[in-house]
Amino acid sequence: MITRRERALNYAILTVFAGLALLPLVGVVSSALTPAEESSSSFTWPSSLDWGNFSAAWTQGHFGSYLGSSVLVAVSVVLLTSVLAILAGYSFAHFQYRGRSALFYLTLVGLMVPPEAFVIPLYFDLRDMGLSDTYWSLILPQTAQSLAFGVFWMRNFFRSVPRSVIEAARLDGASDWRVLWGILVPAGRPALLTMAMLVFMWTWNEFLLPLVMITDEAKRTVPLGLAFFQGQHTTQFSLLAAASVIVALPVVLLYVFLQRHFISGMLSGAVKG
């Protein structure tokens, strides 16, 4: 049993590490609220709060358009990855067929191949198909990138469900389709939401693919837009900090909103290998 002294020590250590993790975030927010004439590259505490930096960064950086592109790409990737991962994970977890294990481990190779290894040939392939400089050139590759993790994640969850639950449903006349969508998917909502949130975050932060695939400014995603904005405002630190907050805010809000499901999903998504 944990004593009061040990609990106090644990909280003290966690508080120190939490402070170290939050300090850079506080510095960015502080810089974003610093008036332009006071801004600098070092940590500064503003004498007054200048909320106009956010509106200036939003207008000058065209982040409204970039956010729309990122939302479209990220939501599409999450939906496609979720549906395909559910179907493939259920197949690998509960169906018996020749080559199942080999096909599963072949799928996991996608976790080991870095995007830098295939982005150039991928660009030429998509260009020959007429898909370069379109949203599909971002959605399809990032869905493929996320699918290996999604299949692994959902397979582990489906294998953690007691087989008696599935057998009872089949005794009641439920088909495999009904078992999957009527029983397993609703029961796996925390694991599914955790997977969706991680895929959304990875897709939102992707920089290399948009840099290679997209030349049309209207189709730029927020990381790419932020990079161009930084190149145009290298010494305007308050504007850069405000733009960074704008880019990161959707992911932060999503995490805060889904925090309870995220923690529950992390505990249940990889229970059984």
Results as ranks from 00 to 15, higher is better:
73 V>P: 00
74 A>W: 03
74 A>Y: 03
74 A>D: 10
75 V>Q: 08
75 V>F: 12
75 V>W: 06
76 S>E: 02
76 S>H: 04
76 S>G: 10
77 V>K: 01
77 V>C: 06
77 V>F: 03
78 V>Y: 11
78 V>K: 11
79 L>A: 15
80 L>Q: 08
80 L>H: 01
80 L>D: 07
80 L>Y: 09
80 L>K: 06
80 L>A: 13
82 S>F: 14
83 V>L: 14
84 L>G: 06
84 L>F: 14
84 L>C: 14
85 A>P: 00
85 A>N: 05
86 I>N: 13
86 I>F: 10
86 I>T: 15
87 L>M: 14
88 A>H: 04
88 A>W: 06
88 A>S: 15
88 A>P: 10
88 A>K: 07
90 Y>I: 07
91 S>F: 00
91 S>D: 00
91 S>M: 12
92 F>Q: 02
93 A>N: 00
95 F>A: 04
95 F>M: 11
95 F>Q: 12
96 Q>K: 15
96 Q>Y: 12
96 Q>L: 10
97 Y>K: 07
98 R>I: 09
99 G>S: 09
99 G>A: 11
100 R>K: 12
100 R>C: 00
101 S>L: 12
102 A>R: 06
104 F>L: 12
105 Y>C: 01
106 L>G: 12
107 T>R: 01
108 L>R: 06
109 V>F: 11
109 V>M: 12
110 G>V: 01
111 L>K: 00
111 L>D: 06
113 V>H: 02
114 P>E: 00
114 P>Y: 02
114 P>G: 03
115 P>W: 01
115 P>N: 11
116 E>V: 15
116 E>H: 07
117 A>N: 03
117 A>R: 00
117 A>K: 03
117 A>F: 13
118 F>M: 02
118 F>N: 04
119 V>Y: 07
120 I>S: 13
120 I>Q: 14
122 L>T: 11
123 Y>M: 13
123 Y>C: 13
123 Y>H: 15
124 F>A: 14
124 F>H: 14
124 F>T: 12
124 F>W: 14
125 D>P: 02
126 L>K: 01
128 D>L: 11
128 D>C: 01
130 G>T: 08
130 G>K: 07
130 G>C: 10
130 G>S: 08
130 G>F: 06
130 G>V: 09
131 L>Q: 05
132 S>M: 05
133 D>K: 10
133 D>P: 11
134 T>R: 04
134 T>V: 10
137 S>T: 08
138 L>C: 11
138 L>K: 04
139 I>G: 10
139 I>N: 07
139 I>Y: 03
139 I>F: 02
140 L>E: 09
140 L>N: 05
142 Q>P: 00
143 T>K: 05
144 A>Y: 01
144 A>H: 08
144 A>I: 10
145 Q>G: 10
146 S>Y: 01
146 S>C: 13
147 L>V: 03
148 A>D: 04
148 A>Y: 01
150 G>V: 05
150 G>N: 08
151 V>F: 03
152 F>P: 00
152 F>S: 09
153 W>G: 07
153 W>S: 12
154 M>S: 05
154 M>Y: 00
155 R>Q: 14
156 N>D: 03
156 N>I: 02
157 F>Q: 01
158 F>G: 10
158 F>V: 09
159 R>S: 13
159 R>P: 02
159 R>M: 15
161 V>G: 09
161 V>S: 05
